[in-house]
Design a protein around this nucleic acid. Structure first.
Lengths: 211, 211, 211, 211
DNA sequence: TTATAAGCGAGACGGTACGTCTCGTCTTCAT
DNA sequence: ATGAAGACGAGACGTACCGTCTCGCTTATAA
């Protein structure tokens, strides 16, 4: 989250509660004001904390917002609904529900936009948000393989590439529908999307195996 | 682009060249500074124009950037390569190439983020950028239908829903891979993506027809 | 007071009233807060002016306070009371009265202290405050010479040196008594002081003439 | 200098060297930074001491600086040069030499300025600096009376008033010439000043005696 | 040809937030 | 209990942009 010299034994320790208060205040401000009108001074005030305390722990608005938003996605969970399609539909709906929350969409897209010019920020986003959720794709696949819905992946490189593709397609489509098209990710859409995705992957797997 | 009272017949007319200069200066500033450090004062200076001139024509930074970025996507063209897969691959590669340009990714994602809290802005983006390019999906489909690669759509509602889904999947996946995953949209990736998409759509069409 | 490029013909002209409002607000703040607690933000607020307007015209707190205080001394006037001693007593009392005002003593001594490390500031003080009042010494002397109370000065260098000495002695003694000794400059003290000064000068003149 | 509960017998005793180190560090910082840029944190660092230690012993910047500067004036000594004029010239030169040192002028004038709004501070200055040096005036006078250069003072009230006047005139003139006029207090100036002062006093004494 | 009207560059205006600095206090561990 | 270390709430600093305004000037149409 934020660094500090590793062996600081002396001096007053940093307040443990301040961190949580700041991140909560950040999300609150994102809901009320959105990213562009969020100011660090206001966040500090909401958190009952001095501006210096905030700057001591985060380098700036972007880093703070990434941390505040990342926590939201930790509640994602892969449902065990018995079939791969249902599992996917479940997790996509959860993902869409989080993304529909104003603190998530307002903050996340803004930092992604900022990350186009800031490699360290992109890395932070990937580490805090994306990679942490990629587990869902991997877990879903192994479950489906255990159930016999998907064949085992012979080649690890192909497996990884496919997982990345699935992640880009799922996250990308949901984000685009929510934020750009501005239409709801409802059950009907999710069913259609999942159908296309799974049939496409199955066909591709057959093709790859054959080729 | 910008409004003006419908019947202003008298007074000095607005400079025609200023608009183009401002939009070009905006793109230049996006490349050098990114969205968050772009200032309207700086754009005005680069364009050799007074700030008032700029404010007379655009309401603010967001509107200006939408217009500046929208022009970039007009160069997209559906190649006629003989097969649906190749057509899609071609247009996806073009789209990815535009999105890789710093003025596009920096500006576009930022205004999309802003649009999460500003319906008028979202509408402007949809009108200026998204809907203007949806023609590619429609044109690609009719061509494929003409070639016999796709069956004709019996139901216009389904047709529209499918076109939206395709657009969300294509745009979403490319944007996510470029901006979030931070990996290149190269020919290999495009081939894999297109394969999954088309097989999925074909299977879904069969399923829908059967259902 | 403050500089600006000499021939600025274009652009909105600076508000003429702002200057006066700022200087008055500065004196008001000096009275209420003293120099060390006076903040430029507060002065700006009192003057009904933005901080930027203030910084556009003065380089900082010191320069502003010098200008605000200098105006106070312009009301000094050499009374024509018929005798040199009475003239001096009158002007010393006036000087002491101004110096007793909180905006004068708080501000003036602070900028003098600052000027110990800032030659430009010392020069500004000398030009705005000291030299502008040295006229009183010169005028008093010529009047006394016209009355025959003092002999004409044969040597201009000696005349200048003596004027400087008188100024240092008068201003120094009054300031020291007011600010350091913290005792009032009342008529009794002024009479004693003037007596010593004049007798000393007369004796010195005789000595110089003889030598 | 600083207070402490009278009967603290237990606990770790205060470091004796810390006081000296802090005052020396204060003077060093005054030389390098001047009063307004001197910070207590910086002084603590220079003295190799924690900020808390410093605040435990002094109430604030002003009190600290008064103590640091007061020590400088203890080296003043009345020379015994055989005549009153020479004695005065000697001590004025010494005083001017101290006042010319940056830690003295920068610090002293600033606390005097602060003292215009802080009676306790003015009292501290008078006790630590002014009254401690008034001994020079008194000693000089008794010596001159012993030598027969000055008549004995019949009236103690007059004697005190005259001593105060002398002190204000001497200190005031030297300070004004050094800090405001910005000219050196050299032997020529001192000779002229002493001449005026002594002749004035002599004439005034005669006048008072006669009246 | 003159009036009227809007656009134009320049730059000052009242605001707001920035990120940094210093203040004086508090909390920890070690002496 | 004192000391060094350093985090803390508070608030001023001087700067940068914001979006508006006021200038004097230019460039049009309409009278």
């Amino acid at each position: 989250m934020q660094s500090r010299s590793p062996a600081s034994r002396t001096g007053r320790p940093r307040s443990a509660t301040a961190d949580a208060a700041i991140l909560a205040a950040t999300r609150e401000a994102l809901v009320e004001l959105g990213w562009s009108k969020l100011t660090l001074g206001d966040v500090a005030t909401r958190a009952g904390v001095a501006k210096t305390t905030l700057y001591r722990r985060w380098a700036g608005k972007n880093e703070l917002v990434v941390d505040a938003v990342a926590e939201l996605f930790d509640e994602l969970e892969l449902p065990d609904s018995g079939s791969l399609a249902a599992d996917i539909e479940g997790v996509v709906l959860q993902f869409a529900a989080i993304l529909a929350r104003p603190e998530a969409k307002s903050g996340l897209m803004a930092v992604v936009a900022e990350a186009t010019r800031d490699d360290a920020l992109r890395e932070r986003i990937r580490a805090s948000v994306v990679d942490r959720q990629k587990r869902l794709v991997l877990e879903g696949r192994s479950r489906a393989q255990a159930r016999g819905e998907l064949p085992p992946e012979p080649d690890p490189a192909t497996a990884s590439r496919t997982a990345d593709l699935v992640f880009d397609m799922v996250a990308g489509a949901v984000v685009h529908r929510t934020l750009v098209s501005g239409k709801p990710v409802d059950e009907a859409w999710v069913r259609g999307f999942t159908l296309v995705l799974l049939r496409g992957l199955a066909a591709e797997a057959a093709h790859t195996a054959a080729g």
